[in-house]
Design a protein around this nucleic acid. Structure first.
Lengths: 129, 129, 129, 129
DNA sequence: GTGGTCTAGACCACT
DNA sequence: GTGGTCTAGACCACA
C-alpha cells in the first residue's frame, strides 16, 4: 500500500492519509480484519507526526471503517462495512453537490460528469491515479 | 436568489456563499452581465461581515465566474463562462475522487453513484435543496 | 487619437486615459499647443463620467504635461515639456524598480529586460499596442 | 533581510512588503526552500497587522513565488521559480509601458532608459536602495 | 456609494 | 505555534 502525501496541498495531511486508506479499502487491498500499522510505526514510516496518523485513524473510526483496539492495534472493520444508510448517502450527495454545480457552470454536460464518475470508479478499483 | 448559510457547518461561510452563488449561475438565475449586491449591502442582508462577502467574491473572481469592477460593482462574467479546460476537469475529478472512494467503501454501486450525480444535476437546475 | 479603456482592469479609468494621452504626446501625435477636447465633450465621446476626464486632466496638469485654462480649454504644454529633472528620473526609476525585480525573479536576464524596454519604445513611437 | 515601509506612500503596505520580498528573492538572499517568518511574528516585527502580512503572502503565493503550507509555515518556492512565460513577460511589459511612455515625454532617450534599467538591476542585486 | 486597504482582536483546525 | 476564518469598525480612492 503506497501512501503519497502532497505537503503543499490545502487538504490536511491527516485527511489525505485517511482518503488513501479509504481507497485501499475500496480497492480491496485492505480487507476486513486486516491490521494496519501502529500509529507510531506508521508515523515513522511516512515521516509524519504521530498525532497526524492518530487523527486519520480516529477519522476512519468515526466512519466505522476501522476499529481501534486500545493497546492492541488497528484493524479494518472485521464484520465488513455495511451498505450506506440513506443518511450517509445524503451526506455524500451534499459534499458532491458544490462540485457538480461548479461542473455545470463550467458547461460540463450531465453525461460528461457521469463519465467522470465512471472513470473515477475504474481508476480507484485499479489503483491508478 | 435565496442564500442559506449553516453557521455551524465546517464549510467556511464565505465558501458556502460562493457555492450557492455558483448554483445560482448553474441554474441560470444569475446570467452573464447580471450585477450582484455590493459587499456591504449583501453582508447586511445576510447578517454577515463585509469581509466575508468580499472573500466569497474574490474566490469567485479567481475562478473567473464573476468580475469585480473596482469602485463600481460586481457582475457575473459578462462574456459567458468558457467550457472547462482539461485541467479544470482534472481538478474537479480530483476533488470528487475521495467522495467516490468513500461511496465504494459504503458499497454503493457505480450506477447508484451515477444516479446520485444525475439527481444532483436535476436538483441544482430546479433550485431545490 | 484612439482611446481604448479596459473597464475591468485594476488600473483606474482616469489613469488609463491619462496614460494614453501621454503616449499620444510621446508619439508626437499631440504637439505643444494642441488643444484637447473639453471635459464635457471628451466625457461624452468616451462614454465616461465628466469627473473621470477631469481627474485625468488634473493628473496631467500636475505633471505639467498640459495646461488647463479655466473656461477656455485644455492645451498641451505650449512651451514644450522640459527634460526630466534628476528628481523625476529618480521617481520613474522607483516605479520601475519592483517590475525589474519581478523580472529578475522570473529569471529574465538584464538583456531581456533591456530588449523589452527597447521594444516598448518602438511600439509607443509607432502607436502599436 | 531589512524591510522598509513608507506609510505615507500611495503603494499599499502589503504591496510594499511583497515587493521587498521579491527583491530579496531576486538578490538571492531568499533562496528556494527558505522559510519566511510567521504572519504574526513578521507583523509584530514590522509593526503592522497580521492581516497585512497575510495579504502580502497570499499575493506572493498567487504569483507562485512562495508556498503557504497551511498551519505549518511559509517557504520560498522550493522547486525554484520557473522562467517567465511569454504571457508573464507580456504582462510585465504592459506594466512598464506607461512608465516608458512618461520617460519619452520627459525627453529621456532610449539609451537613458536602458541605462536606468541596467542600474536598477545592479542596485537590486546589491541590495542598495 | 463602491470596492480597497488597514487595524484589532477572537476562535479554530492542524502540526 | 501555525495559518484560516470571522467579526468589527475605520479611512481612502474612484465613479
Amino acid at each position: 500500500m503506497f501512501i503519497e502525501i502532497q505537503t503543499n496541498s490545502s487538504v490536511p495531511i491527516y485527511l489525505q492519509l485517511a482518503q488513501q486508506l479509504i481507497e485501499g479499502i475500496a480497492r480491496g487491498e485492505l480487507k476486513p480484519g486486516d491490521s494496519l500499522p501502529s500509529v507510531r510505526a506508521f508515523a515513522a514510516d511516512l515521516g509524519m507526526n504521530m498525532h497526524t496518523v492518530n487523527k486519520a485513524y480516529h477519522y476512519l473510526e468515526e466512519k466505522e471503517f476501522i476499529q481501534i483496539v486500545a493497546k492492541s492495534g488497528v484493524i479494518i472493520q472485521p464484520n465488513g462495512i455495511p451498505k450506506a444508510t440513506a443518511e450517509e448517502q445524503q451526506r455524500l450527495a451534499e459534499q458532491i453537490r458544490p462540485l457538480v454545480a461548479e461542473g455545470l457552470v463550467l458547461k460540463l454536460s450531465e453525461e460528461e460528469m457521469v463519465d467522470m464518475v465512471r472513470e473515477l470508479v475504474q481508476h480507484i478499483k485499479e489503483g491508478s491515479s
